[in-house]
């Protein structure tokens, strides 16, 4: 469990969401110790923060490949409106 927490930042977005859902589910069960619930809560908070960060990670760039062999690419803007 300890190792898992240390490597949360390597999770993909869907894995992180999955882990978060699992935590919420566990916490919604009645028989859970105080220590366990606090531990889960702390990890859950970290995961929500991580997931939110992931959403803003993409740069929003649109690139176009000009030449496949040389990977020559340029940033491009499309008149989309």
């Amino acid at each position: 469990m300890k190792d898992k927490e240390l490597t949360d930042h390597d999770l993909t977005f869907e894995k992180a969401i999955e882990a978060l859902e699992e935590i919420v589910e566990k916490m919604e069960m009645e028989d859970i110790s105080l220590e366990e619930s606090i531990r889960l809560f702390e990890r859950g908070v970290r995961l929500t923060r991580y997931c939110s960060e992931k959403l803003d990670e993409a740069e929003g760039k649109i690139t176009m490949i000009l030449e496949r062999n040389t990977h020559n690419e340029k940033k491009t803007t499309f008149d989309i409106d």
């Binding site: 969401i17 859902e21 939110s52």
Partner: peptide, 23 residues
């Protein structure tokens, strides 16, 4: 994007509610 944000927000809410209830 906003539905993902909502989903995360919802999980965060459930998380807080759960820890509150447990405590």
């Amino acid at each position: 994007k906003h539905s993902l944000e909502n989903a995360i927000e919802h999980l965060r809410y459930k998380l807080n509610k759960s820890i509150g209830r447990i405590l």
